[in-house]
Design a protein around this nucleic acid. Sequence first.
RNA 1: UGGGGGAUUGUGUAAUGGUAGCACGGCAGAUUCUGGAUCUGCUUGUGAGGGUUCGAAUCCUUCUCCCCCAGCCA
Length: 559
Amino acid sequence: MEESLARDFIRAIIEEDLKNKTHEEIITRFPPEPNGYLHIGHAKSICLNFGIARDYNGRCHLRFDDTDPSKEEIEYIESIKEDVKWLGFDWGDHLYYASDYFEKMYEYAVLLITGNKAYVDDLSPEQIREYRGTLTRTGKESPYRNRPASENLDLFRRMKDGEFDDGACVLRAKIDMSSPNMNMRDPTLYRIKKVPHHRTKDRWCIYPMYDFAHCLSDAMEGITHSICTLEFEDHRPLYDWILDQLPVPCHPRQIEFARLNVSHTIMSKRKLGLLVEKKAVSGWDDPRMPTISGLRRRGFTPEAIRTFCDRIGVAKTNSVVDLALLEHYIREDLNKRAPRMMAVLSPLKVVIDNYQEDKVEWLDAENNPEDPAMGSRKLPFTRELFIERDDFMEDPPPKYFRLAPGREIRLKHAYYIRCETVEKDPKTGEAVEIHCTYDEKTRGGWSEDGRKVRGTSHWVSAPHALRAEVRLYDHLFCVPNPAEEKDIVQSVDPESLTVLDGCLVEPGLADAKPGDTCQFLRQGYFSVDADSKAGVKKRLVFNRTATLRDTWAKIQKKQ
RNA sequence: UGGGGGAUUGUGUAAUGGUAGCACGGCAGAUUCUGGAUCUGCUUGUGAGGGUUCGAAUCCUUCUCCCCCAGCCA
């Protein structure tokens, strides 16, 4: 074998298994429950499982762990498939559902009963809880524990045939009520739920529990390494126990790793769903959400997410990754690929007094200084322009390089302009229009005499500019670890979304399509939102994916 | 006070008996037609004590702290 690809302890185990010939082909799986949308934490697991399959020429199955029809929906199955594909992974022909195995699982359960390894328990849920004991007190055996196999077989069949109500009885493994591992105290294997299943419809009214279904699904698919998160560590003895009792095709090895946490957001599907339900966000794909669909709408790229997942590492230590790291990788990716555009978010009118009225010059503007192959475009320059309100100050503080009375700046790709006079609102004192002169010898944005200007501003031509709505996003929560907050809905930062209407963008953006990404020069990366409309009802909406690093903001903070 | 895991700099992660490295963040500077990007330098770390060893993040030992488990959820 060539160079080791082992970047983490799981790959190290796999390489060892390959070396020892324990396995010749590596088969992993990504097993989501279709009860919510995928988030960045799932992306870590997807990149791990599919990444391992790719690295070792194996394969990775997509398997829906659909054993609880009361919580699962088709909508989630569709979104999960879409998200995995969008992230850039392909399960080929290997799309499976735990529900596809219900028949086989039932047979395995019968085998367990026949071998006196499982029994039907009539205890109520409350009684089962009492009998289970506590962390420090051992449990006690159910009075139904020693029913003969024949009786259990009959009862289990009748459970399946719908003779009993929900909760009347369950099938339990017969293991050890005094085990220090709670999972081994005769865990429930099957429960009655007279709920139609989104795939098997009314075929079943008993459904297997995770612990029974998961190991068997893995074994039936020939999974070699069953990678899951830390909380299942305690379940591994049960995973192994079940497979040891039954004539299964193989016995996969379960390996646990720490799930991903990211600062300033949450990963709990339940809490994310609560935000959606309580309308604290616009939906699962709200651009502030850490969901894959939210990140996609926000303008993140699959490449950036994959790079992030590859770089955060895989270990068993509980940790919280700084959101700044995710932002770093999207900036890194978009810096290379996003075409630069000019957009004025908070417009301030500028009149170039010595520029001929009605004249329009079409100036060259490079699309991306990082990549000359992206070419250039033409930008209209006229006597009346708009610049960013923040780019002008009547009485600027030290280190302010932008426009102020008497000062000269460069308009990107255009001319040097000097501020001559300011028109102010008599009531507020706020600048409403500034008058400038331009130096016609600085066309293109540079001067032959070599004089320097410290500031460069972006701008749009007033008669050509297009109106747009721009949505600025910030951390969903201002606290670094919102998972610890009592009321998650209340904790949403009201300033996590700022809607700016009346923004002005350059005319080249007229045909922008939802999903298109660009950099608004000096401001950040933006993506066209799905709320945008073409045609008569023309509407342009941009989502801010990420800001640019902002040194000036830091200087201001310190002042 | 049962069982299972874990602890390396601000954050994340390497180093498996031989110079504690990398990335992000932060700070300083260079450079720049984006206060972007790029480049350079810096950045109080092996949870604590004892032991083995020429040499310990790594091995032994005692302790401390953190996470998970008592669903007919996954």
